[in-house]
Design a protein around this nucleic acid. Structure first.
Length: 433
RNA sequence: GCCCCGGUAGUGUAGUGGCCUAUCAUGCGAGCCUGUCGAGCUCGCGACUCGGAUUCAAAUUCCGGCCGGGGCGCCA
């Protein structure tokens, strides 16, 4: 046994008793005859106080350890108002579990900041910082509530292949790889599989999905490997039903995040839970509003980055940070999007403060129309035979969305670089660690 | 894919042709110090991304490579 208590779990009942703590040596302040050692564990830090005259050998050994070495300490817990936790530990025995090499490639509590690149190269140390770990604690919390909410709504979690034969649904470049004697691709999304599952009778499925995208973008908001809550539901009469699930999901996640008080405090953020329902604004109106503000957007075009930001500002003036953009022009949406009339589609985006965080639609469930739309989008139905087959033997009306988690976390926590929101980011140049 | 920018001790920086034997902080090492909590003080250690060119002289200018950052497009 190495530990009886975490730093934050020590209570008045433990005072004057022998307890065991374990963790990383964050800092050693050796004053001469007395030394203060800060020990960090999963939950926080605590102070070890060592007196030279009480045990010169123990004093010497403990104070000469390198920072970030891992130790287990057995000692007496003493109440002390002068110490931040209200207690300190007077070590009696200890065990060194791992000695850290010095100097560190990245200081955990140094007064100098490190470049993000240096931080990522040494992510295992970077994540020793409370602030950085808080992001992933919140990430865990929002995933947990996503599962809870979706399960409660009758969705089941599925896992679809990430190695696929079909090259593209359009819209992005994909990674190519060798699959024995064949060529294969990394899935850009579970889109085709989750739709195929609508033909099975599972009715409502979701996946914590990996998106692999080979675009050579180099921005703060793009990753080449990202995660999403991807969802598909059958027997819907229109896309509004899908939007309803999405807004409730986002709301539940935002709310759960707001309950992570400790992490929010560490991050120095405020999280205000948005009100439901989110505003719906049709694409045509978006174009009008943007044109009123001197945007050069033409009807039919997708919103450019500056248009998205401008719309975010406009919506904020109307007191809303979340909004759906609905009834997109058919030509700006992927082939599987259900048309509405000749020009429009049942596709929508969900934006938060000017950033697109989710995208979805009612889908086409009629195979002839699907083939037609593929051709219009310069895709060959021949390349999608196994997908199309799922539509030939009974496919109910359905729809769904993809909801980017890193984008969500960026907006939730006001983080400027998306790479902060994933443990080991994959971007244009980074393949390690 | 297009465009812009950067690379100096372990870390973060100063430096814009000679005053650079390269600044400061942090770190690391040695020493002093009984209540620190960004501890303090003394001494020390440690660096110009690579290759070529210009020049009497290059961290500094030019060209190329390598590595990285950012914007746009595309998207989550």
């Amino acid at each position: 046994m190495y530990r009886s208590h975490y730093s934050k779990d020590v209570t008045k009942k433990d005072y004057d008793k022998s307890i065991m703590v374990a963790g990383w040596i964050e800092d050693i302040r050796n004053i001469g005859s007395i030394a203060f050692i800060i020990l960090r564990d999963k939950k926080g830090t605590l102070q070890l106080t060592v007196l030279k005259k009480e045990n010169p050998e123990l004093f010497e050994k403990l104070t000469s350890l390198s920072r970030e070495s891992v130790v287990s300490i057995k000692g007496i817990c003493k109440e002390n108002e002068k110490v931040r936790n209200g207690y300190e530990i007077l070590p009696k025995t200890f065990e060194v579990l791992s000695v850290a090499k010095a100097p560190l490639p990245l200081g955990v509590v140094d007064k100098v900041e490190a470049d993000f690149d240096t931080r990522l190269d040494n992510r295992f140390i970077d994540l020793r910082k409370q602030r950085n770990r808080a992001i992933f604690t919140i990430r865990n919390a929002v995933f947990a509530v996503a599962h809870e909410y979706l399960q409660s709504q009758g969705f089941i979690e599925v896992h679809t292949p990430k190695i696929t034969a079909s090259s593209s649904e359009g819209g992005t470049d994909v990674f190519r790889l060798k699959y024995f004697e064949k060529e294969a691709f990394l899935a850009q999304s579970p889109q085709l599989y989750k739709q195929s599952l609508m033909a099975t009778g599972l009715d409502r499925v979701y996946e914590i999905a990996w998106y692999f995208r080979a675009e050579e973008h180099n921005t703060r908001r793009h990753l080449n490997e990202s995660t999403a809550v991807d969802l598909e539901m059958a027997f819907i009469s229109d896309e509004e039903e899908v939007m309803n699930v999405l807004e409730n999901l986002v709301h539940a996640m935002w709310k759960r995040a707001s309950e992570c008080k400790n992490e929010i405090r560490v991050l120095g953020k405020k999280i205000i839970v948005p009100k439901l329902p989110f505003t719906r604004i049709v694409y045509d109106k978006v174009v009008n509003k943007l044109q009123e503000r001197n945007s050069s957007i033409q009807w039919g075009q997708d919103l450019r980055t500056d248009d998205e930001r401008l719309l975010g500002d406009i919506m904020k003036e109307h007191g809303t940070e979340f909004y759906f953009i609905t009834k997109y022009p058919l030509e700006s949406k992927p082939f599987y999007t259900m048309p509405e009339g000749d020009k429009y589609s049942r596709g929508f985006d969900l934006a938060c403060k000017g950033v697109e965080i989710a995208s979805g639609s009612q889908r086409i469930h009629e195979v002839k129309l699907l083939e037609e739309r593929m051709k219009v989008c310069n895709l060959s139905p021949k390349d999608f035979e196994s997908y199309l087959n799922a539509f030939r033997y009974g496919m109910p009306p359905h729809g769904g969305f993809g909801f980017g988690i890193e984008r969500f976390l960026m907006e939730l926590l006001d983080i400027k670089n998306i790479r902060e929101c994933i443990l080991f980011p994959r971007d244009r140049t980074r393949l390690t660690p």
